[in-house]
Amino acid sequence: AAPPDEASLQSRINKATNPLNKETDWDSIKGFCDQLDNEPEGPQLATRLLAHKIQSPQEWEAMQALTVLETCMKNCGKRFHSEVGKFRFLNELIKVVSPKYLGARAPEPVKKKVLEMMYSWTVRLPNETKIADAYQMLKKQGIVKQ
């Protein structure tokens, strides 16, 4: 069985992004953010779990995952910011919006929100330079309208 912390981050993200949720499950989202912040490997594991959910073809599941990501970016600390600011994670977001990868099938609202969030991070987190690099590349490819 997965080690305890792995199980609880996995179970929390499953609950927070469950497509059957009638509305946003803020308790699970808060629990996920707190949990990832309090573990040595938390940010790395959390970004892997989030990337998988964001790439879901189910729009409501993916949108809830983006809400979890947005909440954690506001409430979690530097370690999470620097994990999100790595190409290892940014590449997973790029796959969602790029027609070369999942972009042709990904739901429009999900792609729109990914681009909006990436842009907001280039403004709020200027020292996470890889985010700006990734966003610039999306502009060059015309995925972001000038």
Partner: peptide, 15 residues
Amino acid sequence: GKIEFHDDSDEDLLE
């Protein structure tokens, strides 16, 4: 104190 594992390894930007 808590063991702070900091890993700076990363991938290249997906083109």
